Simulated assay, not measured.
Amino acid sequence: MAIATSAGAQTKLYNGEVSVTAAGFPAVAYFRKGDPAKPLVVFSPGAHHMARIAYGGHSGARREDFLDHWLAQKGYSFLAVSYPIDTPAFAEKRPEFTARDWGKQLIEIARTKIQQNGLSNKIVVALWSMGGKAVQPSYAAARDAGVEVETTISFAATPGIPGLISYTTRIDMAPSGYASRTPLYAGWLKQLADNAKNNGGRAIIPEEIFRTEYVGDMSVNLQGYGEVYREGKFELDHMAQATDYGAFNFDAYPLVTVFENEEVADARHVLADRANWTIYNVNTVVNRYIAGNKIKLGELGDERWKKLVALTRDLDDRLSIEVGGNHFFFVGERGAKRTAAAIDEAVARTRAVRAEFEEILKIPLE
């Protein structure tokens, strides 16, 4: 299905942004064409953020402080999609938006850009923070649409396993029906200020611009604390949310490359991300590569079996890349440049890992 573009429908868009409707919901999309032979990098942000966090564009912004600039240097086409949140970039509020809608929206827009611009049919999906909830929905949508996911990258992202963040946190509902967590903004601004200090002291995103143009209230369905939006209320339903995220669809995940940061300001991600995503990567091998292809392990022979064991056990190292920094590790010139290089490495590593599994199992793999 083609996306619908609403040129001029909004008055608060940055240069290069367009308002679109995809999967039945509004989105703000930013696209820059690169080398058609390279995979399209598709980025979607974490909780309460516009995708602008990856390309900037506000008054006074330096392109070098944002990931898009450095991906352009490497020839990648770049698509950044903002899901509906309560900022001046969106005319309507859609608190019923789910992770399944999110995944379909990302792929629908990506597929349209691929077709319109003659790009290869391959994408790299980069999901930040809360974006971990869209890993399985976006992969499922890509398979349905015939789009090939080269790798999905965790930008300090959290999987949708119930209770992984908290089983007890409850979120305030704004009059819009969206979830409101404005007290979090101060901590995010502190991390951005730290990044500014590490990049010559210049402001990357001034506080007032950040608060009014980069963040806003959003659907509680994406938060990951078990609350869902039903008939104008927040209701606790961990299983419904886990199902929406595909938390237990262990046979239907992509290989996930983990970008590991290091600062105590983002301690939970620093300590847990590799282990969290390794669960899914190993089960991709067990449930999708082996069981899904009806591989008879007893017929591999001793040498191939040992190689399979070694490669599977080594996935946490092979598919983890250190990028340093805090939760906003990709914002600011130094971190943005380093992250673009890490995306190059993530593509190469995933291709190599997949090729090794194909050699061991003697079958082609997605």
Rank of each mutant, 00 (worst) to 15 (best):
E299S: 06
D314N: 15
H69I: 05
A346D: 14
L271C: 01
R313F: 07
S154V: 02
A61N: 14
V258R: 01
F259P: 00
I153Q: 03
A61K: 11
A174F: 02
F66G: 00
V264L: 09
Y30D: 12
Y225P: 00
Y167H: 10
H48C: 13
E64L: 11
E356L: 02
E322G: 10
W305S: 15
E108T: 11
G56S: 03
N117H: 14
V20E: 07
H327Y: 08
V41G: 08
G56V: 09
P137M: 13
P364W: 14
D101L: 08
T182H: 14
G324V: 09
K307L: 04
K233G: 00
Q116C: 08
P254G: 05
A7F: 13
G216E: 11
A142S: 08
G8P: 05
L315W: 12
K38W: 07
L222M: 14
R202Q: 13
K294W: 07
A72S: 15
G60M: 12
N261R: 10
V353A: 09
R63P: 05
K296E: 14
R274M: 10
V285T: 05
F330V: 01
D266T: 09
Q115D: 15
N221G: 07
Y55H: 13
L184R: 01
Y280R: 11
D35C: 08
P175W: 03
L71N: 09
G301V: 03
Y214P: 04
G132M: 04
M1Q: 11
L311V: 09
L164G: 03
E358N: 10
R202A: 15
T87K: 03
D35K: 07
A174Y: 01
F97S: 06
Y185K: 06
H48K: 12
E96Q: 14
M239F: 07
A134L: 13
R170P: 00
V81L: 15
V258C: 06
K233P: 00
P39R: 01
I209K: 03
P26Y: 00
T312F: 12
K33Y: 05
D68I: 02
G325F: 06
G118P: 02
E213V: 02
A23R: 00
A27M: 04
E299Q: 14
L192S: 08
Y289S: 04
N276M: 11
L71I: 06
L271P: 00
N261E: 12
R181N: 11
D316G: 10
T182E: 15
F259N: 00
E322Q: 10
Y178I: 06
N326L: 04
M218F: 12
R334S: 15
A275W: 01
D217T: 08
K233R: 14
G332Q: 05
Q105C: 06
T284A: 06
